[in-house]
Computed example of a mutant assay.
Amino acid sequence: MKSNAYPQLYRLCEQRYSCRAYSDRKVERDTVLTVLDIVRLAPSACNRQPWKFLVADSDEQRAAILSSYDREWIRTAPEFIVACGIHDEAWHRGCDGKDHTDVDVSIAVEHLCLAATSLGLGTCWVCNFDPKAIAEAFGLPEGVEPVAIIPLGYPAEGVEVPAKKRKELDEIVKWGRF
């Protein structure tokens, strides 16, 4: 089922993918700031906004990212943003104490990915990395956890949006009980 109610949003979501090949074109600072300004608008539980987004701006930080996630494709990204969660600032559900840091940061990261897509940029969530190396390279204080690394850049020439394999609505939606 293709939504006709929000054609621009639907198209944007179709275009967003995990980019694993970037051109060497630098992303302009104003463009990075535009993407991050949209991140700022992301909702969070009780509006706590328990996050910081760190833009890698040194060779040491870039090297830490590349060594903490040793894949050849990530080396092509011209920019990296590290999404961090601050557990002490997050909302914790009263009945069981569930920490919503990861939920809130995930919402903000997807805002980042969609904003980047709208500007012709590619992104990819990277969650399989060495958090200790990132924490050290970025000087993260205790209680601040790197949640995701987001490579950011213009997709390499010739890269096409891959076909998405998604479950059908009837596979993911139930009305009433499970």
Rank of each mutant, 00 (worst) to 15 (best):
E142G: 03
D104I: 04
E136K: 15
G122T: 08
D99S: 08
V103K: 04
K132W: 07
C113L: 12
V109C: 15
T117W: 09
L119K: 09
E110A: 00
A137G: 13
D102K: 07
P141Y: 06
W125M: 12
V109A: 11
G143K: 13
D130S: 11
C113N: 14
C127M: 05
F129G: 00
S118Q: 00
V109L: 01
A108D: 03
I134L: 11
P146C: 08
H100E: 02
W125P: 11
D99Y: 12
A137D: 06
H111K: 10
P141F: 02
G143S: 05
T123M: 10
W125H: 13
G143Q: 11
L112V: 02
L140E: 08
L114H: 06
G139L: 05
L114G: 05
A137N: 03
N128P: 03
L119M: 13
C127K: 08
S106M: 08
D99V: 08
D130K: 09
C127P: 00
D104L: 06
A116E: 04
E110D: 04
W125Q: 12
D130A: 06
G120S: 07
L121G: 07
S118W: 02
W125D: 13
G97Y: 12
E136T: 15
K132A: 15
T117H: 10
E136M: 09
K132D: 07
A116M: 10
F129V: 06
H111Q: 11
V126D: 11
N128V: 14
D99R: 02
P131M: 01
H111W: 15
L121Q: 07
T123C: 06
